[in-house]
Design a protein around this nucleic acid. Structure first.
Lengths: 139, 139
DNA sequence: CTGCATGCAAACCGTTTGCATCCCC
DNA sequence: GGGGATGCAAACGGTTTGCATGCAG
């Protein structure tokens, strides 16, 4: 649709960013990823991480998740799927319900926008934060 | 659930912020609202706008929309509904398709999160930006 | 040798916060 | 007179960017 998947060179930094991202099932923010990558590449700069995440998202290698909350998050899985975000700690996990493609057609009838895609974001409280709350309430 | 809807005093500033928000069908950001309100209340501070939007959202008077993109947006309509965001200019509009409450039950079966709610966000290109694109391509 | 990629640091932008003043009860 | 609300400005956190250097083709 837009400029389609420009091929990008796989530098050491990009390779390691990709590996670290693929390692985790959660959806780290850029600075979380920065911390992970820095353990293997201590001299890497934050700017490099941001630049490359953006680049790799543009070229379709990874998924940029722009959900509620302030920070962008990234996902090594590029297939369409939905997410849930903990409204307390901000953690983001996958939700495994089937993707509803008909939504786009449905929505298209009601708007003058040219629809590109859709995303469902659930909000909730993760198990860790639930336990925290129970403890706090019990006091 | 959390602290439920604390009643807040309706000061002049809050009243005008509310009026200006209700006036528009789009979903302005805090600083867009700030600009609108400043025409009627030139000495109002940005901080006041932020503080009050946050407060009014907490007390259920307005809706805070945390969709993709960097800025929070606000909505005078508090009933559940879905949105579409222009991926070029960032504008947000309503999408009038029925709310699918079953999604929450469906998702609940697949996760350890305590689910609070859900939101569907479509992405697309608004008509203004579509025209822009056509012009640009035609050159 | 040439250009893209990097590290570093400064700039940026949206948002939050501390504080003195103000206004309403 | 007292407590919350305001205006103002400084601080903050996340992200982007400019620039000099480095490295791969």
């Amino acid at each position: 649709m837009n400029a389609p998947a420009p091929m990008i060179r796989l530098t050491t930094q990009r390779h390691i960013i990709l590996e670290e991202l693929a390692k985790v099932k959660t959806h780290p923010t850029a600075s979380e990823l920065y911390d992970m990558v820095r353990k293997r590449l201590p001299r890497i700069g934050l700017g490099t991480v941001y630049r490359n995440l953006e680049l790799m998202a543009d070229s379709g290698m990874i998924l940029k998740i722009e959900v509620g909350g302030t920070q962008k998050r990234f996902d090594a899985t590029t297939e369409a799927h939905y997410h849930i975000r903990c409204s307390i700690c901000g953690k983001v996990d996958d939700i495994n319900i089937p993707v509803i493609n008909e939504l786009v057609a449905q929505a298209a009838d009601t708007t003058s926008y040219l629809i590109i895609g859709h995303h469902i974001e659930f909000t909730g409280i993760c198990s860790a934060c639930q336990q925290h709350q129970n403890k706090t309430l019990a006091q």
